[in-house]
């Protein structure tokens, strides 16, 4: 089967005053139509940079240094900006964390929705207007017609995020990138938005890249999951395997450090000691070795690959390699 999105060995770099900083490295994954890929990791791990590389919004100082991003047989890493404008917002769209900053405060909701629809779908203003109202109703905004005339600041956070989702889905994108779409929202509103996204996904064949730091949201939404640490993928698996049988010590640490509400009593949380290394002083060998409880000499010297455990499960850890070796 042909993949909708295939990222091969992506490396993204940013130019700083003194030197070049590699923000993400050796990123490879695939995504099929109708699938939801969860990307989880802590701040600074490169999950947002990965998505911005795909949608071509790295800014002046950033660039895809190595690798390919195949989307529908086209390599987005090589696409010119003018061609990209036809894809962005049309075939690939994105939802950001903070709905207030992704809407323009000086234009009405209607204005902003109609602009994108007219640009990509070649509809008349009147047609675009009624289509925009239809989209707002689809994301269950009450009084859609009046909301079209309102400015973003009048709406609540949850309503704004619904507007952003309606805009993102208006052109029926093949790929939707959602970067922490519910992080700024309250839990009861988050539950509404997640349910909405699940329903919309069932109706269309849209593939979703769901970026979050919240393992609970990942468990709710994703089919398969990528765990990122310090600019690299450290583990990849389907969601059930990942939560049942995490292989990378970082994933294990992450899971152990969340307080659960469904358990009766927890005496003490385990935590991962230390902090994430900065790109300027990345440790030699495995990037996690300074915080890892199972560290060996090999980890300090050699960089592990993303080893295959089985067809769907990969982990960037020497332990996996040795374990496998011992079995054989």
């Amino acid at each position: 089967m042909k993949h909708l999105l295939e990222v091969v060995n992506l490396q993204t770099a940013f130019q700083s005053e003194k030197s070049e900083i590699i923000a993400v490295d050796e990123i490879s994954f695939t995504l099929n139509a109708g699938e939801t890929l969860g990307i989880v990791g802590e701040s600074g791990c490169g999950k947002s940079i990965t998505s911005l590389s795909i949608i071509g919004l790295l800014g002046k100082k950033g660039r895809v240094k190595k690798g390919n991003i195949y989307f529908d047989n086209e390599d987005l890493a090589q696409t010119s900006e003018s061609d990209f404008r036809k894809i962005r917002g049309n075939q690939i769209s994105m939802i950001f964390q903070e709905p207030m900053t992704s809407l323009n405060p000086v234009f009405t909701i209607g204005n902003q929705m109609i602009e994108g629809i007219k640009l990509h779908m070649k509809l008349s203003t009147k047609e675009a207007r009624s289509y925009a109202i239809e989209m707002l109703e689809k994301v269950r905004i009450p009084r859609a017609e009046e909301v079209m005339k309102e400015y973003p600041h009048v709406l609540s956070g949850g309503m704004r995020q619904r507007v952003v989702i309606a805009m993102a889905l208006a052109c029926k994108p093949k790929l939707l990138i959602a970067d922490e779409p519910t992080t700024a929202l309250d839990v009861t509103i988050q539950a509404q938005i997640l349910e909405l996204m699940r329903n919309l996904k069932e109706e269309s064949e849209t593939a979703i890249m769901f970026i979050t730091h919240d393992l609970g949201v990942i468990a709710e939404m994703a089919d398969k999951v990528i765990v990122m640490y310090a600019g690299q993928i450290v583990e990849e698996a389907d969601v059930f395997t990942l939560f049942k049988n995490p292989k990378h010590p970082y994933t294990q640490g992450l899971m152990a450090s969340i307080p659960h509400i469904e358990y009766e009593e927890e005496e003490r949380l385990s935590s991962i000691p230390g902090t994430v290394p900065t790109p300027q002083n990345m440790p030699k060998g495995c990037r996690f070795h300074t915080r890892c409880p199972y560290v060996t000499e090999q980890c300090k010297q050699e960089r592990p690959d993303l080893f295959q455990i089985n067809d769907t499960h990969k982990s960037r850890c020497w332990l996996v390699k040795t374990e496998k070796h011992n079995k054989e």
Partner: peptide, 12 residues
């Protein structure tokens, strides 16, 4: 509120 809280277990 309790019901809306996402639980980190895909089985649930």
């Amino acid at each position: 509120l309790l019901s809306a809280y996402p639980i980190p277990n895909p089985e649930l």
